[in-house]
């Protein structure tokens, strides 16, 4: 969008609290319905429990990527703590259920709240700084949390004769609770889990959509396209960034909780650089700052990951190269490519 159209439309729309007057919301609705229809049909088409498990994992990644795209692609915060936020949600849920016996239905949102709180503290420390420093600091904070968990060797309690740490140490937590789908659906429990994770994904997507369309989203667009103008119009960059950082952390933490309960386990390996890289790759390949990019990226990268599984140990190497190559060769990602193609077709037709 050029500066001229922005300055004419966006503040007016922002003031009225209306969505931006363009056609893209009907397009989003159409794509959304198609995605939802496919998602609803999948359990009837797929018999394999392994494949369903991988699809659930793809939904988890897509949710995390959508949230990271929201804070990086829209709000311009290059946070490298996304997996740490995810982990805090997962650990929060696991620890609350483990130590206090809470039902997962309570501990998942509680864990998400914890993730939001942690994110706000992080945001207060980081977001006044400029771009690269945010990356440096969020990376350092994520590493510190990880290191504190894996080096935790102090026995908090004993399970039989084995020593267990408060944070779960290097092993993490397992079997702290479940969705109850096994008792309810028996052999088809994975379909139940699929439904629950899918619901979480839809929630994540909707929330991200509303933020992008809200006055806050327009504020970000203004900050990105014409920062001087936006600041002059009274947009407070720090406050808007902090708010979206917190909101997106809640949903990232929620996804972390769903992940932990689905696998009935969470350990320090979720912090790994490979996982963070996977999320970055999804967003970069899909298209930074595009709404459907991360979803398309998640599908594509899960497929690529599945293909690379045959090659085993080359998986991480391949991932690293994919992300570097995509940044160089596909600067606007799949979504940008699709947009360019559509434009070329329509101009020819």
């Amino acid at each position: 969008m050029s500066d001229a159209t922005l300055s004419a439309e966006a503040p007016a729309a922002a003031a009225a609290g209306l969505p931006a007057a363009d056609r893209s919301w009907t397009r989003d609705l159409a794509i959304g319905l198609v995605v939802l229809a496919i998602a609803a049909a999948l359990p009837f088409l797929i018999d394999s429990r392994y494949v369903m498990g991988q699809i659930i994992l793809a939904l988890v990644w897509a949710s995390v990527a959508v949230q990271w795209n929201l804070i990086f692609g829209y709000a311009g915060i290059f946070s490298l703590a996304q997996m740490a936020i995810f982990a805090i949600g997962g650990y929060g849920c696991a620890m609350l259920s483990h130590y206090f016996g809470w039902s997962v239905w309570v501990s998942i949102p509680a864990g998400a709240g914890g993730a939001m709180l942690a994110s706000m503290v992080m945001g207060l420390a980081c977001l006044r700084l400029s771009g690269v420093y945010v990356a440096l600091l969020t990376y350092a904070i994520a590493q510190v949390i990880y290191l504190l968990i894996v080096t935790d060797t102090e026995c908090f309690y004993y399970e039989g004769a084995s020593c267990r740490q408060l944070t779960g140490g290097a092993t993490g937590f397992a079997r702290f609770g479940s969705f109850g789908t096994r008792e309810w659906l028996r052999g088809d429990w994975i379909m139940g889990n699929y439904g629950i994770v899918l619901a979480g994904f839809v929630l994540t997507l909707l929330m991200s959509w509303f933020i992008i369309r809200s006055p806050m989203g327009l504020a970000f667009k203004a900050l990105r396209d014409n920062p001087a103008y936006a600041v002059a119009r009274g947009v407070n960059r720090f406050h808007t960034q902090l708010l979206v950082f917190a909101l997106s952390a809640f949903f990232t933490g929620l996804t972390g909780g769903l992940y932990a309960v689905h696998f009935q386990a969470i350990g320090p390996d979720v912090f790994s650089m490979t996982n963070l890289l996977f999320v970055l790759a999804i967003v970069v390949v899909g298209g930074v700052g595009t709404f459907w990019g991360p979803v398309a990226g998640a599908v594509l990268l899960m497929l690529a990951d599945e293909a690379m599984r045959e090659t085993g140990e080359f998986r991480t190497l391949g991932l690293g190269l994919i992300i570097a190559a995509a940044t160089v060769l596909l600067p606007k990602g799949l979504a940008g490519l699709a947009g360019d193609l559509a434009k070329r077709l329509s101009s020819k037709g």
Binding site: F72, F78, G131, V132, A135, M273, T274, L276, L277, L280, A281, V284, E313, F314, T316, L317, L319, G320, L321, I322, I323, A324, A325, T327, V328, P331
Partner: peptide, 20 residues
């Protein structure tokens, strides 16, 4: 930001190549 993302990828690829 583009160069940060690209070098994160290179870094992981390099470490993994050394591991292999």
């Amino acid at each position: 930001t583009a160069v940060m993302i690209a070098t994160v990828g290179i870094s992981i690829a390099l470490q993994n190549a050394l591991l292999l």
